[in-house]
């Protein structure tokens, strides 16, 4: 009994040490922008650096659009498959999980080769580039989104719910937007925050398609030549991820309360 307790604490302490040491070191470094004393100078530099905030704003916009496009694509598809064509479900699942097998670098390589020339010259315009980035992100985050929505629809048994709504005289619009979507809210919100967290920190796809317009590449560039500001930025982006994860937890906990026993 005591041996097991000791063993467990060994791993917890080791985990804590490993997890917090890099954060501690980065934080420590970020306070030393002035040679003579501890200061918040690095944070001040970061706040005054408008490129960072422009890039963050851009990435947030891209993230929101990714979420929007993803939901628009996946909610009706998964609903349709649950309701009308369950035998198509393995196929949808296969394609949705395929991005796990295709690394981001391979995906972006293919996207650039196809869409930087005729017949689809997307990269010639800003809007086209943005759209290509968003499409890439939708593919990249498809496995998470599919799993969340599929699990959500399985949990609420959409077929029965639709039947009930139909028997009460609801039309298709009403069913989808006033019955199905509200019941999927927590699943969709959880997936949305996860997608946002992924997009905000994403580097591989962004750096090849839009370069320094996005947040990830900007963090990289700041790190190349301004170490103190970079350390402040690392702390900031860690906090940003933390907030998004905390929101997921919050939504998930509420979901337990609102969905009740199956």
């Amino acid at each position: 009994m005591r041996k097991a307790t000791l063993w467990n604490w060994f791993w917890i302490l080791l985990g804590l040490l490993y997890f917090f040491l890099p954060l501690l070191a980065t934080f420590h470094f970020s306070l030393r922008a002035r040679k003579e004393a501890l200061s918040l100078l690095a944070y001040q530099q970061m706040i005054e650096d408008t490129r960072i905030w422009q890039a963050l704003l851009y990435s947030i916009q891209i993230g929101l659009l990714t979420i929007g496009l993803g939901l628009l694509l996946m909610v009706p598809t998964v609903y349709w498959v649950h309701l009308r064509a369950r035998y198509l479900r393995p196929m949808i699942e296969f394609f949705s999980l395929l991005p796990f097998v295709i690394p981001a670098i391979v995906l972006v390589f293919g996207l650039i080769r196809i869409y930087s020339g005729d017949p689809f010259p997307l990269t010639n315009t800003y809007a086209g580039t943005d759209f290509l980035l968003i499409a890439g992100y939708v593919v990249l985050t498809l496995p998470y989104l599919y799993r969340a929505i599929d699990a959500g629809m399985t949990a609420i048994d959409v077929a029965t719910l639709t039947e009930a709504a139909q028997s009460l005289g609801a039309g298709w619009g009403t069913i989808l937007f006033r019955v199905i979507v509200p019941n999927l809210r927590s699943a969709m919100l959880g997936a949305a925050f996860l997608i946002l967290a992924i997009v905000l920190g994403e580097f591989t796809i962004a750096s090849f398609i839009v370069g320094l317009r996005a947040f990830g590449p900007v963090i990289w560039q700041v790190g190349q030549n301004r170490a103190y500001e970079a350390s402040a930025l690392v702390i900031f982006s860690f906090l940003l991820t933390w907030i998004l994860m905390a929101l997921i937890n919050f939504v998930a906990r509420r979901a337990v309360v609102t969905s009740g026993p199956r």
């Binding site: 070191a25 980065t26 920190g201 580097f203 990830g216 963090i219 994860m245």
Partner: peptide, 10 residues
């Protein structure tokens, strides 16, 4: 989810 550039810098 904290991978990539900031992780390397940390």
């Amino acid at each position: 989810n904290f991978a990539g550039v900031p992780l390397a810098q940390a």
